[in-house]
Computed example of a mutant assay.
Amino acid sequence: MSVSAPRRPVTAPDVRARKGGERLVCLTAYTAPVARIVDRHCDIVLVGDSVAMVVHGLDTTLSATLDMMILHGTAVRRGLDRALMVVDLPFGSYEESPEQAFRSAARVMAETGAGAVKLEGGAAMAETIAFLSGRGIPVMAHIGLTPQAVNALGGYKVQGRGGAAAQIKADATAVAQAGAFSVVLEKVAESLAREITAELAIPTIGIGASAACDGQVLVVDDMLGLFTEFRPKFVKRYAELGETADEAVAAYAEEVRRGTFPADEHVFGGEPKAVAGGSAA
C-alpha cells in the first residue's frame, strides 16, 4: 500500500504565490488543542491580538501585550504541523519606529517559531514593513478597519465608502510595494475590496470585505459560537459550541447535586482485579 508523502509546511512565499489561485483559508488560534484542529484545514493560522478579548476577557485588543502574544504563539506552534503561523504585533510594540518594530518582531519570531508577523496600518507603516521585510521578517499587512486604531477611527465602522476609498486603495498599494506578502482587508466596502483584490499583486485576506478576496479569515471563537459578547455582521456561525458547553456544564452540575456523578464506572474499587494468567499488577 502506498503511503502519501506528508504535506510540507506553508511559508510566506507560498502564500504570496497563491495570488489569484486557490483561495487561502485562515483562522485564529490561541491554544495548542485548537491549533491542532485548524491546522488540518487551514493554510494560515493567525495568533491574533483578539486573544485579549476572547481569551482574557478584556474590552479591546489594545490591552494585548507582546508577552501575551509570545505566550499564546508558543502554545499554538506546538499544535501546528503545516499551516503558516502569523503572530500579531500588539498595539505599542511597533508604531514608534522601524527599529522598535524589528526588536518586537525578532522576539516573536525567535521565541514562538512564527513564520511571519502581522501589523496594522497602511501607507504610514510602509517604511516599517520595508524595514522588516528587508531583514528577513515576512509581514502580513492589515488595512481598512484596524482595531488598534479604533479610537482614532471613531468606532468599528465600515471603511472605504465614498471619498475614503482613495486612501484605502493608497494604503493597499503602499503595503504591497513595501514588501508585505499579503494584506488583510477588514470591514472594507465590498466593491472596494473587490477592486483592490483585482489590482493588487499580493493576496488579499478578507474579513467583512468580499468573497472576491484571495482568502478569508475569521476569529475561531466567533465562528464556533464561543465568543458571544457581540456578533459582527460578517461573522457566520458554523457551530454554537457556547450553547452546547452551557448545556453540558448544566448537566454536570445537576448530576453532582443529585449525587449521581460519579457513578460506579467513574470510580475505583478497593481491591485490584486479578489479571488472567497471573496476579494483578
Rank of each mutant, 00 (worst) to 15 (best):
D14I: 02
D14T: 01
V15F: 02
R16S: 09
A17W: 04
R18N: 04
K19A: 14
E22L: 12
E22P: 07
E22N: 08
L24F: 11
L24W: 12
V25L: 15
V25F: 15
V25I: 15
C26S: 15
L27Q: 12
L27D: 06
L27S: 14
L27V: 13
L27I: 08
T28E: 11
T28K: 08
T28G: 14
A29R: 09
A29F: 09
A29L: 11
A29G: 03
Y30W: 13
Y30Q: 03
Y30H: 15
T31V: 04
T31I: 02
T31A: 12
A32F: 02
A32N: 02
P33E: 08
P33N: 05
V34C: 09
V34N: 03
A35E: 06
R36G: 02
R36Q: 14
I37R: 05
I37K: 01
D39N: 03
D39G: 04
D39F: 02
D39T: 08
R40Q: 15
H41I: 12
H41V: 14
H41C: 05
H41W: 12
H41R: 09
C42D: 04
C42K: 05
C42R: 07
C42L: 09
D43C: 04
V45Y: 10
V47C: 15
V47Q: 07
V47F: 05
D49K: 11
D49C: 10
D49G: 08
V51W: 02
A52Q: 03
M53W: 00
M53S: 05
V54M: 03
V55G: 01
V55P: 01
H56M: 07
H56A: 09
H56C: 05
G57Y: 06
G57I: 00
D59W: 00
D59T: 11
D59H: 10
T61L: 07
T61R: 04
T61S: 06
T61N: 03
T61W: 05
L62M: 05
S63H: 13
S63I: 00
A64N: 08
A64I: 06
T65C: 11
T65E: 10
L66N: 09
L66Q: 09
D67V: 03
D67Q: 12
D67L: 11
D67I: 05
M68L: 15
M68A: 01
I70C: 11
L71D: 14
L71N: 03
L71Q: 11
T74Y: 00
A75S: 11
A75H: 09
A75R: 13
V76H: 06
R77D: 02
R78K: 14
R78E: 14
G79T: 09
G79A: 12
G79Y: 12
G79K: 12
L80F: 06
L80D: 04
L80K: 05
D81R: 14
D81S: 14
D81Q: 14
R82C: 10
R82K: 12
A83C: 10
A83Y: 10
